[in-house]
Simulated scan of single mutants.
Amino acid sequence: MTAMAGTSATPRGRTATAPPPPAGPRPRRIAALPTAALVLGALYCVVPTLWILVAATKSRTKLFSTDTYVPSLDLGLVHNIRDLSDYQHGIFWHWMLNSFFYATVGGVLASLVSAATGYALAKYAFRGRTALFNTILAGVLLPQIVLAVPQYLLLSKAGLTDSLLGVLLPQLFNPYGIYLCKIYAESAVPDSLLEAGRIDGAGEGRLFVSVGLRLMGPGLVTVFLLQFIAIWNNFLLPFVMLTSDDKFPLTVGLYSLLRHGAAEASLYSLVITGTLLSVLPVIALFLSLQRFWRIDLVTGALK
């Protein structure tokens, strides 16, 4: 017997059951948890930044006498910048230049060291390469506070404490930057291109400069930016190494200004204004280099 349309044949003694209704949309309680976590994380980052923006607009007399998140409209920020520039004959801007020097020179040199080391680990086979890479990778797990005292003792024996080299030399070796350069060199620098260069008579140094660095360009921009920010925000190393005020970076200089503010409360507004100004170069650098953040092998090869 032919079954009617829309029904199905069933064994004798059993009744046909309708198929279960389609499942409705799942509750969104699980999806709400990551969203709430992201919102809390955003507030954790935005609220202190908003407080600095608002507090920098207040004068010394209004900093603690007005509402916390109500900005002042009486040109308090302009007066704070002027007072900060006049403090100790403009030593704040000297600290700013020191931070630029440490971060720029240290970032460029550390990026080159990371590029050369990562390129060698990725493109050359030698005995102990795996053990060396694992040792370098283990350096990522070491906190800077553990290395501060040994670095100070080593550099003090070499007579490099309270000097620019005492701050720059420990920053040149970046384990995480070496790791990124190794991974990027493995994917961005083809072995066939290197073999073609060797056939044409190019030396290993020329291959690294002419081929390796050019193809690793986008990755090196990321390494430089990360190292620049790390040096710019570094406090412990220059605090241990330096004793002269004219060699301080912004982090140590603002800390010394805050320490003096414990006895003179009027300096708190200068510390807040200096903190706001110290963030602006990092934001500008991030926005200017953001367009280079791409893993584009074709573009890198054309360059």
Rank of each mutant, 00 (worst) to 15 (best):
A56F: 00
V271T: 04
H94N: 14
D245A: 15
F173A: 15
L215D: 07
K303H: 02
L53R: 08
G261V: 01
W95A: 06
R28F: 05
L33Y: 03
F286A: 04
L97S: 13
A265W: 08
L142K: 09
V282Q: 11
L258C: 00
N233T: 12
L226D: 12
R14Y: 13
G177I: 04
G118W: 04
M4F: 12
L193F: 02
L193Y: 05
F100A: 12
N98C: 01
G212R: 07
G24V: 01
I199C: 05
Q144V: 05
L153Q: 15
L297Y: 08
L285R: 02
V108R: 00
F100P: 04
G107C: 03
I272L: 01
L147V: 14
G13A: 06
I30C: 00
M216D: 05
R206N: 05
L132G: 10
N98Y: 02
W93F: 15
S244Y: 04
L276W: 01
A122Y: 11
P19K: 11
F100M: 08
G139E: 02
P190R: 08
R82S: 14
G166E: 01
R129W: 04
A55L: 01
Y102K: 07
F224L: 10
T17W: 03
L213P: 07
V39Y: 06
L84I: 10
T135R: 06
L38I: 12
L207G: 09
A32G: 07
G24A: 03
A31G: 10
M216W: 02
N233H: 06
L193K: 06
K62C: 07
L154K: 07
G300M: 10
E195Y: 02
Q151D: 08
F286S: 00
A9P: 14
A122E: 08
L289D: 03
L258R: 14
A103I: 04
L258A: 15
Y87D: 13
R129S: 09
Y184P: 06
R214L: 09
L257Q: 13
G197Y: 02
Y176M: 15
R26D: 03
I272Y: 03
F100C: 11
P27D: 09
